[in-house]
Nucleic acid binder design. Structure first.
Ligand SMILES: NC(=O)c1ccc[n+]([C@@H]2O[C@H](COP(=O)([O-])OP(=O)(O)OC[C@H]3O[C@@H](n4cnc5c(N)ncnc54)[C@H](O)[C@@H]3O)[C@@H](O)[C@H]2O)c1
Ligand SMILES: NC(=O)c1ccc[n+]([C@@H]2O[C@H](COP(=O)([O-])OP(=O)(O)OC[C@H]3O[C@@H](n4cnc5c(N)ncnc54)[C@H](O)[C@@H]3O)[C@@H](O)[C@H]2O)c1
Lengths: 209, 209
DNA sequence: AAAACATTGTTAATTATTTCACGAATTATG
DNA sequence: CATAATTCGTGAAATAATTAACAATGTTTT
């Protein structure tokens, strides 16, 4: 079987959310061209991406919205649910905990950790907040897959170390600092400052000159 | 002058934050190799990126941390501050408003908007919350550069339309739905579900098989 | 001051990604 | 039924991005 690139996978997940919106509207068929108009990717790109998952569409017709969604979802999730452990129940962490959108589809927050004594023991939206000292244990017991870092940057590396020690192989890092991890651990950095700056710069640079 | 790619710009912003951390630690020199170890990009990549901004380093020595930071920062920001207007003061929006990290460096939240009457009129962290009906006016008056969408997805398109109408050319969209905008408007989508799923999938797929 | 070492900037080679273009499949229409 | 109109899947062509390699330059050591 062909190797499926990281980029194809990322776009694939993006297609899933679009297909779900279409399904909700009752649209049973979708062409690569329509999907292109909605998502902003090119139709050729979309066809090529989809083709790496098999022959899903019908020439002259398009793709069955539901079938395509299922095939992509199956590949990405294999009928599983992604279990997430959150570090740092501050304003960002609390927003993530409170967000009801995850629960519906494939993402389950299984545990939260915070250093502050007055936060430990609380249950937010069904998720218990633990002392980070118990993290290794709790993460193993709750079968977490991914760790989220939402602590102040001074503590990010220490949290990253705990996450790695617990055996997790994926981290989403919201703190504005690079963390060092073994190279079999994947890290996704989400840094709003980086997003704002690079967007601003690209706006000026690409449109202006 | 050479065209600088979007990717180079994105990495450039990433380098800036690393250089700032190094400066704080009193490190006055940095080599592409060290920067590579910290950021995870290759040293060749880093040298190539930096070279598009001019001859900054000294062979045999490395880069002056401060000088490199300044050159990158100048290019990205041109001594300006990015002015941001936020739509939706819910849990995510409030986290962004309360975050003190932006104010320090180059990002200024200039206005917030929320539909709920009881939120309008409040001032959070020095930023006033307005009725979205006044958005076009307020955005012009406050010289916003970028709009942030942090409203429920059902309202995202209507907010996007307001942002475009106000003359902004950059949008950061946190809602899990694609928005339609004229093609001279740049959109950055930040969708946590996409991040979690694609990370999960890449973890399994790249390490497993 | 020569030899050994470190590190940049840059060109060339390599690899990855996107776009193009068209045959094949399918439906609709006159 | 033949012709027009869609639309997929895909190999080939074109672009873009990354990595490798190394000459040039500067430092340190002996
Ligand atoms: N809020 C935002 O909009 C925003 C934007 C960009 C980046 N960030 C980054 O996200 C991170 C969190 O931001 P925030 O605004 O939620 O901060 P916050 O200060 O509101 O919350 C941080 C929480 O982490 C907890 N914590 C500290 N050390 C810990 C440890 N070792 N283990 C577990 N918990 C620990 C603290 O007790 C606190 O509750 C920061 O790194 C920040 O720079 C936030
Ligand atoms: N909280 C999270 O962790 C998280 C994670 C992923 C995605 N998101 C997305 O981010 C967005 C915001 O999430 P949230 O958790 O803050 O939601 P929220 O419900 O807490 O807040 C949404 C806010 O938007 C306001 N609003 C609604 N329509 C508006 C309009 N037309 N103009 C201005 N304001 C309007 C509401 O009054 C409310 O205050 C949603 O689209 C959500 O799907 C949130």
């Amino acid at each position: 079987m062909k190797k499926i690139s990281q980029k194809t996978i990322e776009r694939g997940v993006f297609y899933i959310r679009t297909l779900e919106a279409l399904l909700k509207d009752g649209q049973t068929l979708i062409s690569s061209n329509q999907l292109a108009n909605i998502t902003g990717f090119s139709d050729a790109q979309i066809r090529k991406d989809i083709s790496s998952f098999g022959k899903v569409g019908r020439p002259g017709i398009g793709y069955s919205t539901a079938e395509l969604r299922n095939i992509l979802q199956d590949f990405v999730l294999k009928n599983e649910v992604v279990h997430v452990a959150l570090f740092g129940v501050g304003s960002l962490g609390a927003a993530i905990l409170k967000y009801p959108g995850f629960h519906k589809d494939g993402i389950k927050l299984v545990a939260a950790f915070d250093k502050m004594k007055n936060k430990v023991g609380a249950t937010i939206n069904g998720v218990k907040v633990y002392d980070p000292k118990r993290a290794v244990d709790v993460i193993k017991k709750t079968h977490a897959d991914i760790g989220v870092i939402a602590v102040p940057k001074e503590h990010s590396q220490e949290v990253a170390d705990i996450i790695v020690l617990s055996g997790l192989r994926g981290i989403v890092n919201f703190s504005p600092i690079s963390i060092a991890v073994p190279k079999n651990v994947m890290v996704k950095n989400i840094d709003l400052r980086v997003e704002f700056f690079s967007l601003f710069c690209n706006m000026q640079y690409n449109c202006g000159i």
